[in-house]
Nucleic acid binder design. Sequence first.
DNA 1: AGGCCCTTAAACAAAG
DNA 2: GCTTTGTTTAAGGGCC
Length: 760
Amino acid sequence: MMVESASETTRTTPSNQNGVSSLSSHSDGGGGREGGSNGDTNGEISPVDLLHLQQQQALQAARQFLLQQASGLNSPSSNEVKQSPVQVPVSMAMLTPQMISPQQMQQILSPAQLQALLQQQQAIMLQQEYYKKQQEQLHLQLLTQQQQQQAGKQAAKESLHSPGVPGLRGRKRSNTAEDLEARRCSPYWLEWVWQQQIGNKQLAFQQQLIQMQQLQQQHILNLQRQGLVSLQPTNPMQSLQQAMCPGDLQQLWKEVSGVQSAEEALKQQQQQTGEGLDLSTNSTSSSFPKANTHSTLHSLHNGQSNHTPKRDRYRDRARLFEWISSFSKADLGDEHLMPYTKGGPLSSSHHEEHAGSHPLYGHGECKWPGCEALCDDMGQFIKHLNNEHALDDRSTAQCRVQMQVVQQLEIQLSKESERLQAMMTHLHMRPSEPKPFNQPLNLASSGSLLKRESEAYPEGLPHPPTSAAAPITPVRQGPSVISSSSLHSHSHSHSHSHSHSHPHGVGPIRRRIADKFCTPIASGIREELAQNCEFYKNADVRPPFTYASLIRHAILEAPDMQLTLNEIYNWFTRMFAYFRRNTATWKNAVRHNLSLHKCFVRVENVKGAVWTVDEVEYQKRRPPKMTGSPTLVKNMISGLGFGSLNASYQAALAESSLTLLNSQGLVNPSSAASLNMLHGMGHNDVSSTVEQVNSNGSCSPTLSPQQYGHQVHVKEEPTEVEEDRRSVSLMATITHGNMALPSDRDDRDLEDELPTDELE
DNA sequence: AGGCCCTTAAACAAAG
DNA sequence: GCTTTGTTTAAGGGCC
């Protein structure tokens, strides 16, 4: 067993180096691993694309199903849908991004969901119809305008031959000055003036159309994010083309991009982003581009581009960059977008300095949107880049478009991540919930939020965190504290003592809340920390582990499994906000524990002394109670993966739940039920807990076929040992590995003494 | 009630 | 002399 922990330690060492961030990134990496593997199989397709694809397929199937349902083909009884048949398709659908049949959809979605989908689908159709009508109306207006333009032209020409110019005056009475001017000017000049007038009007309509398109796109995008509309129909080019003739579109986009056509630009963007990204907001969603586009359009359309004073052009460019900088500061400057922006196209100039590779250069061609110019080598490419994509309006506009592409993708990604987290949460897959739910992409907000929470508590109180922070965290943070508080009984005993002293102490409340929701019950210290390291790092909540287990964890987590006292201190402060204050107290406790427990061995080093963990001693530390417990309990505990529980808690569990376990038949593979029974013991709400767990845990909604066999070990309580040995847990694949150590000795104690076979 | 565990506090000493 | 490190004792609370 030493070997096990040692190997695990070495395996996870790298991630430990970075402390908290590595923990979160690891859990993220776990989540992303699935996407990553998908990406591998699909070559260039990114996980986001796959997500979209999957979503598209699901939604398509949903629509199909809804249509069927609407036509009365299916009338599922509400109860049936919710029950067991749901489970497998969900997991299968999650694991394999294949086409989901309407039947599957029916199974996946609850009747309420289906009904909501149906209603929303209808609403969407209505809205789309409305938009379509609006488009048609506008298009009609545009056509009318064009006809008027033609007629006007004719009239103007006619007016040249007739001195009175009645036709012109009659039609354009408002522009008398220009009429007079037109009468004085040459036919060509007059035509130009006329074109300008008509053109402006037409442009206004075009702008109107575009804006409407954008509105529509935005709306559909919103719906899309809610999972109601697939991505396909929202192709901005399609809808734009519906509303505007290709020529107009091309013209419009030529004005923006300067060279490439709109389709080319968009296609290029779509190719780069991998799918029909909603670009509708690209051109005019922000105030500046709208104005700029319009002004550029205006001048170009009027044939004045060459007449534009240099000063104006520079002013335009200045505005462009002003806007871009404001964009990057404000729009993308949101904490969650900033990091991406930094690595995004805007920062490509930074990459230019790095010889050898360039994000805009690949496969011998320029990757600038819409360029694809062939460049033999880097030097040529740089030359090309400087010549063709220099700092001008066009490049700036293209850059702006790209920025919006990225922004849209990020938004989409955040939404999808959020959805994924929600799905995983729903399916008890124990995601690192706080992070994605609080904010889309970064951890900063959660940190700040939690900090805000923690800062709300006055400093200097004897034990404010446990009592004060408790009420919020369980609800807010869900699994983090839930799972943590599942271990409360021994390490929180003290805290609870404080809580109990309050008439409305939060300790018991928190405990009860935890019990109620304890799906991922009794997770080990490693998992707990792995999943909620951000939480503990930011929230002033006491970790539900003993000093001894924490110290041990810190030491075993270290590269060479040894730490100086100061390093242990640092680990504590790094990992837990709680240990960033009252330092004298807990440091004393740490020292006390180090000295007190034989399992901590002080080793003289060249530099000084380091502390190591004597696993044998650690395991010897508290066996009596457990050994005294009936074999059944121990088997169950080990079989269910109770390994991560620390000694006292296991003992408490074993002892307290003995009768209940015996009476309720623990051999039931539903680990959740057993666990919750265990955990529920000693509380008043045992029955409810058991009930809930039975409903949740006995069925296996999240288990794929391959893990089904290990459901007992995996689902609710994947211990470190279990993870190491079997690595079948879905959760393990997600959150596995950064805290690779058995948190408590009794885990392996039980594992060794009592093979899990006995249970199976 | 007693034992065990955990935490906190504190005294003390040695080393840096 | 001060701080850090390490040891030890005591007390209190929870749990069984």
